[in-house]
Design a protein around this nucleic acid. Structure first.
Length: 412
RNA sequence: GCGUCGGUGGCGGAGUGGUCAAUCGCAUCUGACUGUAAAUCAGACGCCCUAGCGGCUACGCAGGUUCGAAUCCUGCCCGGCGCA
């Protein structure tokens, strides 16, 4: 089997749909939750564990793999699939998100990479703070591309749309994304418009660079990304523009964290109405249960998110009755599993008390089990969403799930 | 017994006359986490409350000096070390 294809099998209610996204490395039943494996690894989980949790597809990151180990190394070792020993469908993100997280998002949240903690004598590779923050950020944008100061060692690097595509060709994922500028939803209208227009220009260049590479073009699909922040008119314009360029699929761009307000995802979803009806759509960074339900109802086919592993590592576990901090004092003697109705390895074999103990004792199995459970939970949720779409009962499923999930959250 | 150094909040450990309820680390408690700068981060952490540049009690114990003491003096108790 060569090439990719997308087939919608069931539509409704509304824009919701279920189908099959075929890739050279297998089929993806959609909607599907995509596990994030930024540096060619889903943090803490083996490919076998991912498969057992029901994961169908992973997404790795261009910026991170370019820095470490370098795309040439990955290519020499047979490409990303062989390198990380994941023979299922793979995506790569373009590095556009890092424009945001290392750019305007830099320093917005206190991180461990503060100058005081950058101690060379400990042998830890840290960035050169003087160099890195000479602009107050690690990424500086111009119309041609982006200059990055590596967060690892302070060295300077340059990404352009062509460069991002070239790297993603070498990584060899089945689906990859055009280089875009991810913005914070809090940016002004003027800035969102500017970033959107830049993203459109870059999309055109990314697409062109890909189509010119015949070999890559036969194996890999490229998705264009729409932006526009929380401004509906920009979002729609972006969807129309990207949707008409001839991409193989579409990515909902942005950052949907709650701290930016509740309508950032909704405004992005409005883009769906402007896209070709059969174009596959990926929601970038959509991963809280209520957002998965919302996005699926609007017709998003795949989504990726760090929520299962990042939350898992920090001791936050999903349950049908809301999310709990499993390392909390109230679970020290709790002999129930994380979620009594969950069939994952963690819930089938271990108590909350045990996992709580692992976290308190700083044992690595704690984050592993919590990540494993969260992954299973979110993948299963999307599986249930897909099933509900096929059985024409998405709304009822959604209402029931959310009522219980939010009620549990309030009780907590 | 003599000498000497030391006894600070759950622990370690700063502070050595005023702005000290007391730096900091650990532990503890709570919370956050949406295309991973993240095995991370934030807040709380003597007691009380109407939650405030609020009240009270505190730096081994008891006195004293001083306008003012965790900080100086005396005695006692306890611990380390040295000499007997």
């Amino acid at each position: 089997m060569a090439g990719n294809s997308f087939r919608i099998e069931k539509r409704g209610p509304g824009r919701a749909r279920a189908g099959v996204l075929s890739t050279p490395h297998g089929d993806i039943q959609t909607p599907a939750f995509t596990a994030v494996g930024t540096k060619a690894t889903v943090k803490g989980l083996t490919p076998t564990q991912l498969k057992d949790a029901g994961v169908q597809v992973l997404i790795a990151n261009t910026y991170h793999l370019y820095l470490h180990p370098g795309e040439a190394t990955v290519e020499k070792l047979g490409g990303l699939h062989d390198f990380m020993s994941w023979q299922g469908p793979l995506m790569t993100d373009s590095g556009g998100f890092q424009i945001f997280s290392l750019g305007s998002g830099f320093g917005k949240k206190v991180s461990k990479f503060t100058p005081e903690q950058a101690s060379p004598e400990e042998g830890v590779a840290v960035y050169n703070d003087e160099l890195a923050t000479s602009h107050g950020k690690l990424a500086v944008i111009d119309d041609e591309g982006v200059s990055f100061t590596s967060h690892l060692d302070g060295t300077l690097h340059r990404f352009t749309p062509e460069r991002s595509v070239e790297i993603q060709h070498k990584l060899g994922a089945d689906i990859f994304f055009a280089f875009d500028e991810c913005t914070a939803p809090t940016e002004t209208y003027e800035y969102q418009k500017e970033a959107m227009e830049r993203t459109h220009a870059w999309a055109k260049r990314s697409l062109s660079a890909h189509r010119q590479n015949t070999a890559a073009n036969q194996k890999q699909w490229i998705y264009g990304i729409g932006q526009g922040g929380q401004f509906d008119d920009l979002r729609r314009e972006s969807a129309r523009t990207i949707g008409a360029m001839g991409f193989d699929g579409f990515g909902l761009g942005g950052s949907f964290s709650r701290k930016y307000g509740d309508n950032s995802l909704q405004s992005a979803l409005d883009m769906l109405s402007e896209l070709p009806a059969d174009m596959p759509v990926h929601g970038l960074g959509v991963g809280e249960p209520e957002d998965l339900l919302l996005a699926a109802a609007w017709g998003v086919d795949t989504f990726d998110c760090v929520t299962p592993t990042r939350n898992g590592r920090s001791g936050s576990a999903y349950t049908r009755d809301g999310r709990i901090n499993i390392d909390g004092a109230s679970y020290v003697l709790d002999s129930a599993p994380i979620d009594a109705e969950c069939s994952c390895y963690a819930c089938s074999n271990f108590t909350r008390a045990y996992i709580c103990h692992l976290f308190r004792a700083k044992e690595m199995l704690g984050p592993i089990l919590a990540s494993l459970h969260n992954m299973h939970f979110l993948v299963e949720l999307v599986d249930e969403i897909r099933k509900a779409i096929h059985e024409s009962r998405l709304e009822a499923f959604s209402v029931a799930f959310l009522e219980r999930f939010n009620k549990g959250r309030q009780l907590k």
